[in-house]
């Protein structure tokens, strides 16, 4: 058990024939990830990395029974690629692509509402269930199977959080990168919910950052969970001078003056253990595990 993906999940890759996609998909296959198909328009019928290529997601799903998609398509094609996946009723789509236009993301969010599909990303390192499935661009040598769930709003700090669990002598159940953008398909709530339902996750590490109100919303949600699993968190950006790169009244009007400290206060009130220093996460994890 893990969340979202494991070694039985049948995965198709949209945009599999690109250079970066090929490099990382090959690594994922070597890792044991069950990649069963690729989708590249006009290349249907060909083979790439040993799997069949289809012109559309629908064809790939019909032939291979894939339920999850890993996306390496160019930014301007992400909207149509997501719409294809939603139509084919994929369970999960993981979008690695960065630079997706904001207006396209608005459309994507509208398409996802009321659909069966959840989108992770865009601009995410992906999802990895160590020892079972790697969907994305995660470095491989830092992960190992274990019982800590990791969820992060910052790609590179995801890796840092994983290294912290390793330092604590622990491994990860699943690691989810939500994506670095200000608007992403899935936020903390869905992932926290899944980790709480997962029998193989004991503790959750959560990494937030300055900007938006995702952490505050997640904290409110956490309050409502009856059987809480401990969350050890870190929020990056407290050294950034307030107001940096914030020239517009609209920014303030719509999002309010939320500093990192405000976020941390709300999270602590909800019972989340927030570390002042990301390098102390492993110590806190050891403390929690020794009590179990």
């Amino acid at each position: 058990m893990a969340i979202f993906v494991d070694n039985k999940t049948r995965i198709l890759v949209q945009g599999i024939t690109g250079t970066q996609a090929s490099f990382h998909v090959k690594k994922s296959m070597d890792y044991g990830t069950k990649i069963v198909a690729g989708v590249t328009p006009r290349k249907g019928g060909e083979q790439h990395l040993g799997v069949p290529i289809f012109n559309t997601v629908k064809e790939a799903v019909e032939s291979t029974k894939a339920t999850v998609s890993l996306m390496f398509v160019p930014a301007r094609q992400v909207l149509s690629a997501v719409m294809e996946g939603v139509e084919a009723e994929l369970e999960t789509m993981v979008c690695i692509t960065e630079h997706v236009p904001v207006r396209d993301m608005l459309e994507i969010k509208a398409v996802l509402r009321g659909s069966k599909t959840k989108l992770i990303g865009p601009n995410t390192p992906g999802i990895i269930t160590p020892g079972q499935a790697r969907l994305g661009v995660f470095p491989i040598n830092i992960h190992k199977p274990g019982r800590i769930g990791v969820v992060s709003r910052s790609s590179t700090l995801t890796y840092a959080a994983v290294i912290e669990t390793t330092l604590a002598g622990l491994g990860q159940s699943t690691v989810v990168g939500l994506g670095d953008d200000m608007m992403v398909g899935t936020d903390f709530i869905d992932v926290l919910k899944a980790f709480h339902e997962d029998k193989n996750t004991d503790v959750i590490v959560m990494v937030g950052k300055i900007g938006g109100q995702f952490e505050e919303v997640a904290a409110e949600y956490y309050k409502t969970i009856p059987n809480k699993k401990p969350i050890v968190a870190f929020v990056a950006g407290s050294a950034v001078p307030f107001g940096h790169d914030m020239g517009y009244a609209g920014e303030l009007v719509s999002y309010g003056q939320h500093t990192v400290q405000d976020k941390i206060d709300v999270m602590r009130k909800a019972g989340i253990i927030v570390m002042d220093n990301s390098n102390d996460i492993h110590k806190e994890l050891q403390k929690i595990i020794s009590k179990c």
Partner: peptide
């Protein structure tokens, strides 16, 4: 990664 930058700035300051 912006996250690493933010985290480093925090660490340098501390």
């Amino acid at each position: 990664g912006e996250g690493i930058a933010l985290g480093l700035m925090d660490l340098i300051k501390s």
